[in-house]
Design a protein around this nucleic acid. Structure first.
Lengths: 215, 215
DNA sequence: TAGATTGTTAATCGATTAACAATC
DNA sequence: TAGATTGTTAATCGATTAACAATC
């Protein structure tokens, strides 16, 4: 079928398009041009057209894109048109925050199971879910057909959790721990690394009086 | 002075190098080659050498890089060798989680002030800091010489917060809200967008029986 | 019809990787 | 000295942007 390899850069932009299109739909905007999209998202219109054209001819020449149709198509491409239950390991501050963010994910993609090692976390209730012990991980993942896992444990434990996820048949992992995971090549791992994000932000600060020069 | 433009991709890798070098230093490893680094970080050794060479000659031919010296140098490059106090707006679940993560940032970069609009959040204590009303933002930022701001408010309010930050003289923003911020070009904005991260992750799931085909 | 905008090819730009002389 | 590894140039690869025929 489609044999063209889609680059990661393209895939990462699709959720951005989707989000803005949803905003337009809520305002009852019916069509949008690549020009408009590019303006709002700080992207080149040609890039947006090219990105979308990888997956089909979604627009109308002279008109632009039908907002609702494009939403439907991008949701299909991203596989957001089906149930995608998510498991989370690590019921610390960050883990709890993400569970409470469920509201921001659409109904289809939702954290449905939470795990932790520590006895005092287990059986806590977070957003109507009971925190389960790690021993239940594989069983729950299979029973609930969970395919995506989130890791919010300390860096030192992240690899262990990843191993458990892989053993349990998870296909994709979002890792919030500041550590590089080693997983089989068929498992997809994305990093949400906000300490790295903050540190790279510091690079762009204007030089101040404390700037170090060789001497 | 240095007039070569360093690409964003290079800057984003520096914190990754730094983190692993710190791990090595804790294990009392004295030198490391680009080969070793590449292996552990899943990067091409030539890329690592080239990245570092933009900033100076930090290695020794035939030997590799002195771990502690390279840590020092990268910290200088990223401006992590000085005090970098950070302000956070939005004392919800995520904001609170980040404030408690202060431990993961090094002493130099630390969240030192928290703000929120809602009356029931103000004067709450988070990690020994009092949540302040937005009216104090500009004053506190100037008094504490804060240059970096974190936004953890709902998407609809993010732009307003960014505007306040800019007015108060913030130089760089890390935005956790799922929204595109419009700021003057001299302000650096990074996004920590985990819903987009999760959604793009779904793309890489294997096709299942529910996959939609045109018909 | 005239104006607008797509889909797509070609041109450009930038980032990654390979290769190797220099040298510890 | 021989082996290892850097810094750097050249080659490759991939992503972005420009341009334009097709067409609504």
């Amino acid at each position: 079928m489609k044999s063209i390899k889609i680059s990661e850069a393209v895939v990462k932009r699709l959720p951005i398009y989707l989000r803005f299109l949803n905003e337009l739909a809520m305002k009852n905007v019916l069509t949008v041009s690549s020009q408009d999209l590019g303006q709002k998202l700080n992207l080149n219109p040609a890039q947006i057209r090219k990105d979308l054209a990888y997956f089909g001819e979604f627009g109308k020449k002279g008109i632009g894109y039908d907002v609702n149709y494009l939403i439907e198509k991008i949701r299909q491409i991203l596989k957001l048109d089906r149930q995608l239950p998510v498991a989370l390991v690590g019921a610390g501050n960050l883990g709890r925050a993400l569970c409470n963010y469920n509201i921001y994910l659409r109904d289809q993609m939702k954290i449905v199971a939470i795990f932790d090692v520590s006895a005092d976390k287990i059986n806590q209730t977070i957003n109507n879910m009971n925190v389960q012990p790690m021993e239940h991980l594989a069983e729950t993942i299979r029973a609930m057909k969970i395919r995506i896992g989130i890791i919010t444990v300390p860096a030192a434990e992240a690899q262990n959790v990843a191993n458990e996820f892989v053993k349990a048949g998870i296909e994709a992992i979002l890792n919030f721990a500041p550590s590089i995971l080693k997983v089989p090549p068929e498992i997809r791992v994305h990093h949400a690394d906000f300490t790295a994000e903050l540190q790279s932000l510091a690079y762009y600060l204007a030089d101040d009086s404390e700037a170090q020069e060789e001497h």
